[in-house]
Design a protein around this nucleic acid. Structure first.
Ligand code: MN
Ligand code: MN
Ligand code: ZN
Ligand code: ZN
Lengths: 144, 144
DNA sequence: TATCTATTGAAAATGATTTTCAATATTACC
DNA sequence: GGTAATATTGAAAATCATTTTCAATAGATA
C-alpha cells in the first residue's frame, strides 16, 4: 500500500468517514498519471475501470483528497479546474502553451525570494502565490 | 472628450459598429473608478445613473472595451471576473488579501526579467503572465 | 425620410460544479 | 454473524456567472 492511501485512510479514520471502493479506485487512478486532469477527464478514466462510479462521486473524492493534502487544484483560467499531485511534490509554477495546452512545471528560487521581499515591502504576509507564464512551447514554435 | 472615448469611437467606426448612449455611459462609469469591478458591480453602478440599461448590455460593452484595448480582465480565482483599466496602465501584478479582498498593484522589474529568462531556458516564448500573491494585508494583520 | 443592419433587453441556454434525496454500504457494537 | 447508526452513493435538480437567442428598436447613411 502506497503512502498516499495510508494518508487517506488516516484522514478517514480521524474524521469518522468511511473507506469505500470508489474512493480507493479514484485515488489509484488519480495517482497513476502526472497529467493535470480535470474532473471530467478523471471521471472518464475511472469509468474505464468501473463504469458504475458516478460523476458526483469523483467530484466529492477530489474535495476529499484536497482536504487531506494529496491533491491541489490548478486553475489555468479557462474555466476548468485541473488537479495535480500534492503529496511529495513541492511548490512549482507553470509555463502554459496556449497553442497545444501542454505545460512545463518550473521553479526558480530567485523569483520565489523576490516575491517574498516584494510582499514584505508592502507589509503583506503571503500564504501562497500563483505564477503562470502563457506563451508558445518549443514544439509549437517550430511548426511555423 | 477623453482619450478613451476617442479610442472607442475609432474602433466603432473602423468595424462598422454603432455609437450608442449605453456604451458611452458604461464606459464613463467604468473609467470613473480605479476599483476592479465585476460585471455585476459595474451593472449596479450603471443602473444608478440609467436604470434602463440591461445586464447583457454591460457584459457586451465589457467585451467591446476589451477588444479595443481599454479594459483587461483580472481573474483572482474566485469564479468572478473583474475588470481593470488597460489604457495608460502598464502591466502589473497583484497582492490579494484573502481576509478583506483588497489588493495592491505591484511591479518588480527584476521578477519580470527573471520570468523572461526562465521561459527562455525552456525554449518557451512568453506572451503574457499572471502573478498573484495571496495573503494578509497590513491592516488585516493588525486586527489580531 | 427610407433603408439597412447593429444594438438592445428579457428570457432562455450554457457548462462546470454543487446540492438534494432516497437507496445502499460501511462501521461499531452485540 | 446480526443490527443499528450514519456516511456514501448516483441520478437528477439546482446553482451561478456568463453567453446566446430573438423580436423590437435605434443609429448611420444616402
Ligand atoms: Mn503542476
Ligand atoms: Mn490591477
Ligand atoms: Zn505547445
Ligand atoms: Zn486585508
Amino acid at each position: 500500500m502506497h503512502k498516499e492511501s495510508e494518508i487517506l485512510e488516516r484522514y478517514i479514520k480521524s474524521k469518522d468517514l468511511r473507506h469505500t471502493p470508489q474512493r480507493e479506485k479514484i485515488l489509484n487512478i488519480f495517482l497513476s498519471t502526472e497529467k493535470h486532469l480535470s474532473a471530467d477527464e478523471l471521471h472518464k478514466l475511472v469509468k474505464k475501470r468501473d463504469s458504475d462510479i458516478g460523476y458526483t462521486t469523483v467530484y466529492r473524492a477530489i474535495k476529499l483528497f484536497s482536504k487531506c493534502g494529496l491533491l491541489s487544484e490548478v486553475d489555468f483560467g479557462d474555466g476548468i479546474m485541473r488537479f495535480e499531485h500534492k503529496y511529495g511534490h513541492g511548490h512549482h509554477d507553470h509555463l502554459v502553451c496556449t497553442k497545444c495546452g501542454k505545460f512545463i512545471e518550473v521553479i526558480k528560487p530567485r523569483i520565489e525570494k523576490l516575491q517574498e521581499s516584494l510582499a514584505k515591502e508592502h507589509g503583506f504576509k503571503p500564504t501562497r502565490h500563483k505564477l503562470q507564464i502563457f506563451g508558445t512551447c518549443r514544439r509549437c514554435s517550430m511548426k511555423k
